[in-house]
């Protein structure tokens, strides 16, 4: 599956503003793994996501998928393996295009885009069938512009668009953080269902400790550019928010500082 070995990334190297975002990260995801990632401010969680998706290139180290290195591939070239949902509900969809057009663009993930109609009758049926899974009635609004949807609806659509072509790995970058609690709950449930149904290998960054413990079969904790804790499925069952905070203090020698952290 996906493997990250000895990845480091510095910002402003050699200047007074030098910042170590990632230092010697090793992480291997097995097929079907659902890993939640938590950590303090500036721990390198977002940088890790950006390195995997190709938005940034690591200074040293390798990223590989199914044994083949993708370290030097640009973002759009590795998109065929990687589905992504951003924190900003506006980021994952094109607002001035219709729901069916957005789905059509997601449908062609990683393929060459030529002169076939984007929305055909056959594809439309598929889109409807997929949208029905969200259970929020989007299948009846195929021609509505995505900009007219609420933040929660847009994020649900982003999630579906990122997953329905069954990418090798799904990256979720705090994708419920910008939503109100009820909508965040809906997206969390959808995430769980979609990931389970398609058995997607998933890496999810979250600020919600409870969510990090409840979801997935593995949890990693990051601090100052390193992975400081890796909890497997068995240990994870016995984990609580208190224990997790205690672990952080024990390993790093300070309290978890995160202005956005949600304890649950």
């Amino acid at each position: 599956m996906i493997e990250i070995s000895k990845v480091s990334k510095l910002f402003n190297p050699g200047t007074v503003d030098e910042k170590i975002a990632l230092i010697g990260i090793d992480l291997k995801l097995n097929p079907g793994d659902f890993v939640t990632v938590i950590g303090s401010n500036g721990a390198g969680k977002s940088t890790l996501m950006n390195i995997i998706s190709g938005v940034m290139k690591p200074d040293t180290g390798e990223v590989s998928i199914d044994g083949g290195t993708i370290t030097q591939l640009s973002e759009h070239r590795r998109a065929k393996w990687i589905g992504r949902v951003f924190q900003d509900p506006m980021a994952g969809t094109a607002p001035n295009m219709s729901i069916e057009e957005n789905m059509a663009m997601a449908y062609k993930r990683g393929q060459s885009r030529m002169f076939q109609f984007g929305v055909t009758r056959a594809r439309k049926e598929l889109f409807k069938q997929q949208l029905r899974k969200l259970g929020i009635g989007l299948e009846n609004r195929l021609r509505a512009k995505v900009g007219m949807l609420s933040g929660g609806e847009r994020q649900a659509l982003s999630l579906l668009m990122a997953t329905f072509t069954k990418p090798q790995i799904l990256l979720l970058d705090e994708h419920t953080a910008a939503l109100d609690p009820a909508r965040a709950e809906l997206i969390t449930q959808l995430t769980e269902t979609l990931v389970r149904e398609m058995n997607l290998t998933t890496l999810m960054v979250t600020h919600n400790m409870e969510q990090a413990i409840k979801l997935g079969n593995r949890l990693i904790m990051m601090d100052k550019g390193r992975i400081i804790l890796d909890v497997d499925a068995k240990q994870k069952k016995e984990l609580t928010v208190e224990k997790l905070l205690g672990e952080f203090e024990r390993i790093s020698g300070r309290k978890l500082a995160d202005d956005r952290v949600v304890l649950g």
């Binding site: 973002e75 759009h76 998109a79 992504r84 094109a94 663009m105």
Partner: peptide, 8 residues
Amino acid sequence: RMIRSFGA
């Protein structure tokens, strides 16, 4: 950003 994440 969106269409890049889908490989265009």
